[in-house]
Every structure is written in structure tokens, then in C-alpha cells.
Amino acid sequence: MAAIVDMVVHLLLVILMPPLLLGVIGKTKALFAGRVGAPFLQPYHDIIRLFRKGSVFSRTTTWLFRAGPVVTLAATATAALLIPFGNHEAPVSFAGDAILFAYLFGLGRFFTTVAALDTGSSFEGMGAAREVTFSCLAEPALFFALVTLARVSDSLSLSTMLTRVSADIWIGEGASMLLLLSGLFIVLLSENCRIPFDDPNTHLELTMIHEVMVLDHSGPAFGCILYGAAMKLFLLGAFFMNVALPFKSGSAAGDWAFFIFSMIALAVAVGVVESVMARLRLVRIPQLLVAATVLTAFSMLLILR
């Protein structure tokens, strides 16, 4: 019974909560800028409105352009089944699901970038090139983190890997966990195209990464993309927060409440980073990503010691 409740809560959170993170980030940034800002629920309104709008398709595009957002969203949603939230196991968990989790995002990326190239626009080609290049540098960092977590938890399943991180591990292996966390935070920001890697709100196509890839999408397709991006932030955020705050309240409801709280805290943290930092120059981005890889590699080294 508890398992079924957990699964239902898990699915509800995955479906309902992601846009809220965007709202919290927006509100935090507004506070920093001294504005009132859009309401917390604005991203929900945006997505719903997009699903009610008509579409414009470029004459250059083919079926792939239409399929891209769908496949990406489906891959992200499948990844959502594999990751535990807070102290609760994921609906699907098996040995090696961590590898699948990473690769499902790869599948999504493949289709997003291919859909971008389908338009024949050089801006979108530019965005696609940046996306695939930067993500292939972020990938090793993620896998170093997985090695560390596999070592800590003696498991290859995300559910065990992430729920077994505890305060004891933090006390025993604090330095390693700290390095791991800083590497993961960089990966989180870069994979979700947040500042300092990409500015979701910039007005200039030349400087964008993710937003420029989806310039030509409109209506429901763009809704799918926005929603998928929010979900990806939510999932990688959950990965990060499971490591960062391994707090166990002892009761199921308490754990869920703590998880929701920690996700909002993460959104605030992302908002703060976006408010106090400028976007990096494009040539600096690979360096920061390599640094993230080296940080996670250090954390692996310390845990092996």
C-alpha cells in the first residue's frame, strides 16, 4: 500500500511540480532586481496557453521537427521513473538504471538538436552545435559522480545510490561529497542551460544555446519543450538535492514534505546564482565544464582512498 502511495505521489510530483521551479527562480530573480515579478504559477499559465495556441511550421521542416519535442518529452518522462525523490524509492529501479538515466537525456538531446537542424536556420544550427559540444563535456562529470556514488552505496541503482547517502557519509567523507556536489551543481546548471552557461531570458539569438534551438517551435510543440525543460531541471535537481541534503525524517509524509521544500530551496539557489552572476563568455564554458569533471574526479579519488 505504502509503495502504491509513494508511486502516486512520485508521479504527481513529476507531472505537477516542474513548472513551479521556474516560477520560483523567476520570483527570486525579480526580488533581487527589486521588482515584484510574475506570480509563482506563471509558468503553468504559459504552458497551458501554449497548448491552446495554433502553430506555425517552416516550409523547410519535415516530420522530425514535429517529432522532436514529443520524443524529448517522452525520454525525460521515462527518466523521471528512475530517480528517487527524497527518501522514497523510484517507481522503477534495477541494477544499472543510473546508466540508463544518463542516456535517456542523451536521446532527448539527439532529437532536440536534430529538430533544430531540420529548420535549416543557422541560428538554430549554432544552438545545436553548442548544445551537443557542451553536453559531451558535462557527461564525464556525471559519470565520475556515478562512480563515486556507486562506491559509497555499493549499488548501481539510482534508488539505492541516492537514498543511501546519509549524514554519516557526509561526516565521514565530507571533502569528497563537497567536491562531488560542486561538480554536480555545475553540471546541473549547464545541462539545464542556466546562467552562467546560458541565459534563458536573453534577447539576442547569437548568444543563446537552448532557446535558440527552439526558435521555430510554436504552440503545443513549444509547450512540450518548455515543460520538458522544466522536468529536466526538476529531475537533475532531485538528483542533486538527494546528495546535498540527505535528511531522513523517519515518516513518509515528512520525507515528501522535506523533498518538496528542498526542491524549492534549490530553485531559490539557482535564482540567486542567476541574479549575482553574469553569463560566461562562450569560450570559457568548456573550461568550467572540464573543471567540473576534474572536481568530480577528485571526489572519486578521495572516496577510493
Binding site: 516550409r59 521555430d216 503545443p220 510543440a221
Partner: peptide, 13 residues
């Protein structure tokens, strides 16, 4: 959803 809504064709932006 797409079929239910108006669809226009244009050049790439």
C-alpha cells in the same frame, strides 16, 4: 492538439 488548432506555414525564422 495541433490538428484542432490553426496551423500556418511560413519560412524559417
Amino acid at each position: 492538439r495541433i490538428r484542432a488548432l490553426p496551423v500556418a506555414a511560413s519560412e524559417t525564422w
